[in-house]
């Protein structure tokens, strides 16, 4: 069994109109992980996924899916993949049951009514199986798309913006379903521009911007590496200016001098804080309250792509 689900090297894509969507992507995704591809609109997330799935022809580069080249050995590569695209594209007049069985057939698998039944039950679609898709709500359609993608029991599932325009409750239940899938051994790659989603779900995060992967890290390492911490001192007496001999610290005044904000990096040593506290005591600056903040992925993200 290969340890790598996806291996991409030197992937470039320039569209016919000259737009360069991917500018040299190298990426390795391990089996069984949840990988979040994070980036602003137009960063190249969907192009990258489409190239892996064979919908977009890359201009250069190589993609291996479970060790199979996705061009030379496209059957094996594509059989391993299930794709839930961003757009809700469904056959409006088909029933849920037919459309999911159709997808399974397309991917070369013989009919398996038991598996499809189990799948539809898992996605709470079983009671809608004979309904025409056009009669379903948006959230249900989204789940039909997921059922179609899982109909052929893929090893790798792509979710392109799975929770765009989905309400909070459904989003939470989708996250739970994705985690349950991961437990069955499926590798999951999701794109999102909701930081919250990546933070909640992902084992590893790749940030993509203007067709390049800016960073690929485990979520915790990313926060540690890039994360800023802030300590906010609410003062008993407002301060006019920061004392000049404290300029070494990244200090700032806020709230008309009632608050002193100290910004530092997460990987900095704790010594600095005790130094700072000592320094404040010497100057007789007395905080009545201390609050500490840690930057979220969102802050990190804005810092990287902004």
């Amino acid at each position: 069994m290969q340890n790598t689900a996806i291996e991409i090297s030197g992937l470039h894509k320039t569209y016919e109109n000259g737009f360069q969507a991917l500018a040299g992507i190298d990426l390795e995704i391990k089996r069984g992980e949840i990988f979040a591809l994070l980036g602003p609109n137009g960063a190249g997330k969907t192009t990258l996924i489409s190239a892996i799935c064979g919908i977009v022809q890359p201009s250069a580069g190589r993609i291996l899916v479970c060790g199979h080249d996705n061009v030379a050995d496209y059957r094996a590569a594509r059989t391993a993949i299930g794709l839930v695209p961003q757009e809700l594209a469904t056959d409006a007049f088909e029933s849920v049951w037919n459309t999911v069985n159709f997808s399974r057939g397309l991917f070369g698998k013989p009919r398996n009514a038991d598996y499809i039944e189990e799948l539809l039950k898992r996605l709470s679609l079983w009671d809608k199986k004979d309904e025409q898709i056009r009669r379903l709500s948006g959230g249900m359609k989204r789940r039909v798309m997921i059922a179609k993608a899982l109909s052929h029991e893929p090893d790798i599932l792509f979710l392109d913006e799975p929770t765009a325009g989905v309400d909070v409750e459904l989003r939470k239940s989708m996250w739970a379903q994705v985690r349950a899938l991961q437990e069955t051994g499926v590798t999951i790659i999701l794109t999102t521009h909701y930081i919250e989603e990546a933070e909640e779900m992902a084992d590893r995060i790749g940030v993509i911007n203007k067709g390049r992967l800016v960073i690929t890290e485990t979520k915790d390492a990313l926060i540690k590496k890039m994360g800023k911490r802030q300590m906010v001192f609410s003062l008993r007496e407002p301060l006019q200016d920061i004392p000049s001999d404290m300029a070494d610290y990244a200090l700032a005044l806020a709230d008309n001098g009632n608050k002193l904000v100290y910004t530092y990096n997460a990987h900095q040593e704790d010594r600095d804080i005790s130094d700072l506290l000592e320094c404040l005591r010497e100057k007789n600056i007395r905080p009545k309250e201390i609050e500490s903040r840690q930057s979220s992925l969102e802050d990190i993200f804005i810092q990287m792509v902004g």
């Binding site: 064979g54 919908i55 993949i81 794709l83 594209a89 469904t90 409006a92 991917f107 070369g108």
Partner: peptide, 13 residues
Amino acid sequence: FTGTIYEILSAPL
């Protein structure tokens, strides 16, 4: 037109 072609294109066909 509807976009469902994605499935045909990404299938091992």
